[in-house]
Structures are given as structure tokens and as C-alpha cells.
Simulated scan of single mutants.
Amino acid sequence: MDVSFRGYTRFFIQSPSNEETLPTGQAGNLAVRLAIEPQLRPEHKVRVTVDGAPSQSAMNSSVFMVPGLERGKHVIQAELLDASGRVRQTTEPRVVYVQRASVNLPRNPNNPANAGGG
């Protein structure tokens, strides 16, 4: 193990809270905020995973937007990567639930039954 890597005393997901439900109006768009102390060093990056898969490229940031989550339950985690791209720290997982409007609702304009116009 690389002894030159100094870990972070705090590395966890501040928001969303565990088992939070995203309302329908957010369309599955999730803002993820991390608490990182000391401040994230320039050579380190963070990536957010959704259900075990990276949601985007790793960035030197503590705020991420995860767009377009499907309806249902998702597990969100963040991974801290060192300068060589190795995972050095991982947050505790957070579970989020996404509500999405059903296209089958009678008043939804995306319902195929309403496609005839008028």
C-alpha cells in the first residue's frame, strides 16, 4: 500500500439522507453533496456510483448531479480516488427512492390514450 496517501478524517454523503424519497417533480434528478475534511486535495478525485456503477467521470468536487434516475430504489455511494485512480476511501451507502409519474395516468399528456389529440 502507498504509505504516502493521507486519508480524510470525514468522507461521507451529506445529502440526500438515507432512505430519502425524491418527489415526482424532480424527474429522478439527484443532487449529491459530500462532506470531505480536510479539503479535497487537487490530485484527488471523487466519483459517485449508482447501484455499483459509476454515474459519471471522477471529478475534483464535493457536489454532483446524477440525472434521470429510474423509478424505484437506488444505492448511492461515493469513492475517493488517489492521483493514480485507485479507490482509497468509500462512503457508507445511501438508499434513495425515486417516484416518477406513470405514463398510464389518465391525465398525463404522455399517456398513449391521449395521443389522438382533442
Rank of each mutant, 00 (worst) to 15 (best):
V63C: 10
T9K: 13
S61L: 09
Q26I: 05
T24D: 12
N60H: 15
A53P: 00
N29M: 08
P109H: 04
V75Y: 02
R86A: 14
S57M: 06
Q56I: 00
G85F: 05
Q89A: 12
S57Q: 12
Q26R: 14
V32Q: 04
G52P: 00
R94V: 14
E20I: 04
N60E: 01
S102L: 03
N104R: 13
R33Q: 15
V48F: 08
G117M: 07
M65I: 11
A58V: 01
A113P: 00
F64S: 09
N104L: 15
S84E: 09
V87C: 11
P42S: 06
P42L: 06
P23L: 10
Y97M: 12
G52H: 02
V48P: 04
G85Y: 09
G85I: 05
P67L: 08
V103D: 04
L69C: 01
A113H: 05
V32R: 09
M59G: 09
R94K: 15
T49H: 04
T90G: 02
N110E: 12
T21G: 04
E43R: 10
H74C: 01
L105D: 10
R71W: 04
Q77C: 11
P16E: 09
E37T: 14
A27G: 11
V103F: 12
N114Y: 02
N18Q: 03
N18G: 07
A78I: 02
H74E: 00
V48N: 09
G28A: 03
S17E: 10
M59S: 12
A101P: 00
A78N: 04
D2C: 04
S62L: 07
Q26C: 08
P93F: 07
V48D: 05
T21F: 08
R94Y: 10
V50I: 13
A31Q: 14
S15L: 11
P54T: 03
N60R: 13
R107P: 01
A83Y: 11
P23F: 09
N18K: 04
G28W: 01
R107E: 11
M59H: 13
E79I: 05
A115H: 09
V87N: 06
Q56S: 15
V95R: 10
A83K: 15
G72Q: 02
M59T: 12
H44L: 13
P106K: 03
N110D: 14
